[in-house]
């Protein structure tokens, strides 16, 4: 009940800057699929960092998020799970303390991408031009299309080995100042696991830090495996096409 009230006080938009806001989340999500930035070549618009060297077609993972907001003396912390499938798309699900899930699906027939948002069991399809732009951008990233990322961001490599993406396109610029990516080195990982830290500075210079660990899957994920990693059932059903949303 409380969630519904919140959603109505801050109603979701079918267009406009709210969509751009979602990009923060989605761009953060896409960061999880970027490989640790270790190369030493100079970066340029024409030659983006080799952060898209994603050889895994399927993987799952978990993340933690910390937001520092002006006027708030403590960090706002949350956590959740994500799933990636090269032939289906992405699920990004926050479950602690709030429940909000983003589902990005690739339409194989039309080669277009569709975005959904689930809050409190309610599904909303994001139909705006900006959403289309964003999902196309992410699909480019998923398919290791470096030209795609170079068209949206200017990439800069930092001395500490991290990389920074600065938006070039106005839709992104309105929401994000910059995004930094670096490899997680201070955590213990299991076999095949890797971690990444993503720092997003938004238009108000408020900072969001996401740390994520991913585990590759040898076989395609299924509806069952999706539910197992505590992603809402409805989001999984949507992801695996057993739920139709107009």
């Amino acid at each position: 009940m409380k969630i519904v009230q919140t959603a109505r006080l801050n109603p979701s938009r079918s267009d406009g800057l709210a969509q751009v806001g979602r990009k923060i989340a989605l761009v953060a999500a896409l960061g999880l699929f970027l490989s640790p930035i270790t190369h030493s070549r100079p970066l340029s618009d024409q030659e983006p960092p080799d952060v898209l060297d994603n050889k895994d077609c399927y993987f799952i993972g978990s993340f933690t998020q910390q937001k520092s907001l002006s006027g708030l003396s403590t960090l706002a912390e949350s956590a959740g799970q994500f799933i990636y499938s090269c032939d289906r798309g992405v699920i990004w699900s926050t479950n602690t303390p709030e429940l909000e899930t983003l589902v990005l699906k690739s339409e194989t027939t039309t080669s277009k991408a569709i975005a959904y948002r689930l809050v409190d069991g309610l599904v909303e399809r994001l139909k705006s031009r900006q959403s289309r732009f964003l999902t196309e951008l992410i699909m480019n990233l998923m398919s290791s299309d470096q030209t795609g990322i170079a068209s949206s961001f200017t990439a800069e490599k930092n001395e500490d080995g991290s990389a920074t993406l600065v938006p070039k396109k106005r839709q992104l610029k309105r929401a994000i100042k910059k995004i930094s990516f670096s490899k997680l080195t201070d955590k213990q990982f299991g076999v095949g696991q890797s971690g990444i830290r993503i720092v997003i500075i938004d238009r108000n210079l408020e900072k969001t830090v996401i740390e994520a660990v991913r585990t590759p899957l040898l076989e395609p994920s299924s509806l069952e495996s999706c539910v197992e990693v505590r992603v809402p059932e409805k989001a999984c059903a949507l992801f695996f096409s057993s739920l139709k949303v107009s």
Binding site: T6, R22, V119
Partner: peptide, 26 residues
């Protein structure tokens, strides 16, 4: 309800704040 909703929204990934949090906490 309003208070709880605002408290929860600070974690949301899908909201964008035109104004900084201290000017628009809800």
């Amino acid at each position: 309800t309003i208070t709880n909703g605002a408290a929860r929204s600070i974690h949301s990934m899908s909201s964008v704040r035109v104004y900084p949090f201290n000017q628009d906490p809800f």
